[in-house]
Amino acid sequence: MKAVIYHNPACATSRNVLALMRHAGVEPEVVEYLRTPPDRARLITLIAAAGLQVRDALREKGTPYAALGLADPALDDAQLLDAMFAHPILINRPFVQTDRGVRLARPSETVLEILPPVHAPFRKEDGEVVIDAQGRRPTKKPGQ
């Protein structure tokens, strides 16, 4: 399976997604998007293919989002994209593209929707079970 992950190695979610992809037997092309951001057309394509609006692809935490006034609802998609290109840290991560589609893999287990079936146990870095010993995804109780 061909796959690409727009990755930030400093991000735990991104690291978990990459590990989960490899656990599923998929060795993706890893694009460290802070070093090599996708071009405008590519980012627009990823956002649309993931079924998102541009605003949904913006990262707020640990970015200049507030300082740039990006919460202003009057800003249009072009202005938001301009900010994302000026400050790639504003691009939420990780975006993953496989033969089965595109997802903004937040939470990390969202990537399972576009990977081959995974039955072997998998835990996130923090120990959270994503796939249990029986090959099932644990159900979360309300409020978890």
Rank of each mutant, 00 (worst) to 15 (best):
E125V: 04
G101D: 09
N16T: 07
A71E: 07
E128R: 06
A24V: 13
A133H: 13
L115E: 00
L34W: 03
T98N: 07
L43Y: 04
T98Q: 07
L43D: 01
R106W: 13
A83C: 09
A41M: 12
R35W: 02
P107Y: 04
D99W: 10
D132F: 10
P88L: 02
E32D: 10
A71I: 02
P28K: 09
Y65N: 08
C11N: 15
Q97L: 06
A78W: 13
G51N: 01
R123A: 04
G143I: 00
I47Y: 06
I91N: 11
Y6T: 06
N92Q: 08
T45P: 00
T13N: 13
K2Y: 07
Y33G: 13
V96Q: 01
L68S: 14
E109F: 08
R35H: 00
L43R: 06
D76S: 03
A41G: 15
A41V: 15
R106P: 04
Q79M: 04
T139R: 15
V31A: 04
V111L: 05
V111S: 08
V96N: 12
A3H: 04
P28S: 15
P121Y: 15
P116A: 08
V17R: 15
V30I: 07
Y33A: 05
G62L: 08
D76L: 03
A24W: 03
P9D: 09
T36E: 05
D126I: 01
G135N: 12
S14A: 12
I131L: 10
E29D: 15
F122Y: 11
T13S: 15
D56N: 11
L52W: 07
V102Y: 15
A66D: 14
L68K: 11
L90R: 08
K140H: 06
P121S: 15
A49M: 10
P88V: 08
A41E: 14
P37S: 03
Q97S: 10
Y65A: 03
A48M: 03
R15V: 00
V17F: 14
A74W: 01
V111Q: 09
S14Q: 09
I89A: 09
D39N: 12
A50R: 02
V31C: 02
L68H: 11
P121N: 14
K2Q: 13
K141Y: 05
Q79I: 03
P73N: 14
A3I: 00
E29V: 09
L80K: 13
P138C: 06
A83W: 14
P94T: 03
L58D: 02
T110K: 05
I114L: 03
T13W: 06
D56K: 09
Q144S: 01
A120L: 00
L34E: 11
L52S: 06
V26R: 04
S14E: 13
V130P: 14
A19N: 13
L104E: 02
P94E: 04
A71S: 14
A67P: 07
A48E: 11
A83H: 06
L115N: 09
T98F: 08
A71D: 02
M21C: 04
A50E: 07
A66F: 13
S14M: 11
V4A: 01
H87Y: 09
C11Q: 06
K124S: 11
R22L: 01
T13I: 05
P142S: 10
K124W: 05
P37F: 11
A10W: 14
Y33R: 05
E128I: 11
V118G: 00
P121I: 14
A50I: 09
R15E: 04
R103E: 10
L68T: 10
P9L: 02
V31L: 08
L75E: 03
H119F: 15
T63F: 10
T36D: 05
